[in-house]
């Protein structure tokens, strides 16, 4: 029996899951914007973020330190991947860049297993985030609410960074008019590195936020990557914010689909993507 309370809680749940997708898609879009290549290592960065958060918060006892360490470590890792590997390829060598990132992802994933073992891990949220809150129509896990708030704060902060600051103006110029940016004397190379670090850090943070919810498993990165890529394409590749909207939408659609066609909740997204691209090839918010 499907009541309005149940519908409400499914939507709330969908927004929380969607917030994680949005963070992933946001990072992917920023990297895609400057590098013109979807970051196939984004899932592995998500995985690394989750494990770093688990290790650091377990070691230090501080949940916040875990989140911070995850974002910082993956941002550095992203910077290293861009500087040491991706830069060595011509920017036009599309397939080779994808494969390079795929190989890098494999190495990162296996290194995580080599360090922390293949068995799944459990991470507890801090005590003040455990248990449920009453939404008025249903109990709702406090931690899911926290994910929504945390993701909203981070996305707003990055939005402000891109739209309201001097660095952001350059990043936007690099995405929208790379040739003009170059001729204006903007160091596009440094921008690409910065964007890669920013996107990677967002992936790591998403992993850290997901860890107490889904637990840690070595395949979490691959699973997340497939969804995040779909979200970005749905949102529109021309737009860095389309992915945020599409992420929330996909989360809600998946959550509602669980009410009627639970077995198909994964496949619904792929079917939706094919349909959207047939009707609106540039994605939801994309231009061109």
């Amino acid at each position: 029996m499907i009541t309005s309370a149940l519908l409400g809680v499914q939507v709330a749940n969908g927004l929380a899951v969607g917030a994680l997708y949005a963070l992933m898609a946001f990072g992917l879009s920023i990297i895609k914007g400057l590098l013109n290549v979807p970051n196939f290592a984004h899932g592995a960065l998500f995985l690394v973020g989750a494990y770093v958060a688990w290790a650091v918060s377990g070691g230090s006892g501080s949940f916040w330190l875990g989140l911070l360490a995850a974002a910082a470590a993956t941002a550095l890792l992203g910077m290293a991947i861009e500087r040491l590997l991706v830069r060595r390829l011509h920017r036009g060598a599309y397939l080779f860049q994808l494969l390079l990132l795929f190989g890098t992802a494999l190495v990162m994933e296996q290194t995580v297993i080599a360090i922390w073992g293949g068995l799944g891990r459990s991470m507890s949220p801090p005590p003040w985030l455990t248990g449920a809150v009453d939404l008025g129509f249903s109990p709702f896990p406090r931690y899911l609410l926290f994910i929504v708030v945390a993701a909203a704060v981070v996305i707003a902060a990055v939005w402000a960074l891109i739209e309201r600051t001097w660095i952001g103006a350059r990043i936007r110029a690099g995405i929208e008019r790379p040739e003009m940016a170059q001729s204006l004397g903007i160091d596009v190379e440094a921008l690409v590195t910065a964007a890669f670090a920013l996107g990677a850090g967002l992936a790591g943070l998403a992993g850290a936020l997901a860890a107490p919810l889904t637990g840690l498993s070595v395949t979490m990165g691959t699973d997340m990557l497939a969804i995040a890529l779909v979200v970005v394409v749905l949102g529109g590749l021309g737009s860095i914010y389309g992915g945020v909207l599409a992420g929330l939408l996909v989360g809600v659609v998946q959550s509602l689909a669980a009410l009627w066609v639970p077995q198909a909740s994964t496949v619904v997204i792929y079917a939706a993507m094919i349909l959207v691209l047939a009707v609106r090839p540039q994605g939801l918010l994309g231009e061109r």
């Binding site: 009541t3 889904t214 699973d223 669980a258 909740s265």
Partner: peptide, 20 residues
Amino acid sequence: NAAHPLGERQYTQYLTQAVA
């Protein structure tokens, strides 16, 4: 009964129904 695909990561959408 909530049927979920193998390898599901996200159970809250099934658990909301179970708890309700």
